[in-house]
């Protein structure tokens, strides 16, 4: 790939804006929050972030934001993520790897179906802040 300039990046952004496809998640605004504390990083949270971008792009989903937070107090089941989409409960998933990311995008975000094998209980209240670290 040739080295892009900021002007190239601007042109890419403009092209993407014009190219609005029908989305699999039309009408939904959602959020994926990735635990990126020391524990998350050590367990592969960076790979999870990378894979979310790949999968969301693959399915043409542009209305889900991807953000980061620190340790959620669930170090033993890192990488952890929280998925917040309309019509679904807010869910924390643990032990998330590359393959799990695709399952979460397909089943939870697009299909409104929980990915039961990876659901984790809420962390201890002494570690989460009052707003749930959101």
């Amino acid at each position: 790939m040739a080295k892009m300039t900021l002007a190239d990046l601007r042109a890419l952004r403009d092209a993407k804006k014009v190219d609005i496809k029908k989305r699999a998640t039309e009408g939904k605004e959602g959020r994926v929050i990735i635990g990126m504390g020391t524990c998350g990083i050590a367990s592969g949270a960076k790979v999870v972030l990378d894979e979310f971008l790949t999968q969301l792009d693959k399915y043409g989903i542009t209305n889900i934001s991807v953000t980061q937070t620190g340790c959620m107090g669930l170090c033993s089941v890192e990488p952890t993520i929280e998925v917040i989409v309309p019509d679904m409960p807010d869910i924390i998933y643990g032990n998330v790897d590359k393959a799990t990311v695709e399952t979460i995008v397909k089943e939870h975000i697009i299909g409104n179906k929980l990915v039961n094998d990876h659901i984790i209980d809420r962390p201890a209240s002494d570690i989460m802040s009052d707003d749930g670290d959101k």
């Binding site: 790939m1 990046l9 952004r13 990378d50 971008l53 542009t62 934001s65």
Partner: peptide, 20 residues
């Protein structure tokens, strides 16, 4: 250039830029 850096499609473009 990209505006909101939380949006997955902005982040996807940012990744393309950083990879290049």
């Amino acid at each position: 250039v990209l505006g909101d850096l939380n949006n997955s499609s902005s982040l996807f473009m940012l990744r393309e830029y950083l990879r290049s």
